[in-house]
């Protein structure tokens, strides 16, 4: 018998929390993006785990769509970062103070 799904959910929760803390702590926008990827992976892991626990393929389909959305998000986000770097000469969150209104 393989590992119970609860353990995977625990790992998923820990991974999501680490990603959330990193998103709050770090200043570099690139590292913040990586932390968002960590959180997305945690959610993917939870989806696959539930797909196995409930024996339902829909969980894996959702993971497939999350992968596509993550790829699109990274492309646009990195484009924004490059654009910001051109005008601000820096990629920390402090360089985005022009957005504060």
């Amino acid at each position: 018998m393989s590992i119970s799904g609860n353990w995977y959910l625990v790992v998923s929760a820990i991974l999501f929390s680490i990603g959330a803390v990193g998103l709050l702590v770090r200043k570099s926008v690139l590292v913040m993006f990586m932390c968002i990827e960590l959180m997305l992976n945690a959610v993917n892991l939870a989806f696959v785990t539930y797909a196995r626990m409930l024996n339902d393929i829909a969980g894996q389909v959702v993971v497939f769509f999350v992968l596509v959305v993550a790829a699109a998000e990274v492309v646009v986000g990195l484009g924004i970062i490059v654009s910001i770097y051109r005008s601000r000469r820096g990629t920390t969150a402090d360089d985005l103070h022009i957005l504060h209104g």
């Binding site: 590992i3 995977y8 690139l30 993006f33 696959v48 196995r52 993971v63």
Partner: peptide, 26 residues
């Protein structure tokens, strides 16, 4: 963990798309 939970295709896509494309883009 995907491989261990009957998600073979997603494991391959995870390695190819995430490890191969997204991280390289980063």
């Amino acid at each position: 963990t995907f491989l261990e939970q009957n998600a073979d295709f997603l494991a391959a896509v995870q390695v190819i798309v995430y490890g191969g494309a997204i991280v390289v883009l980063f």
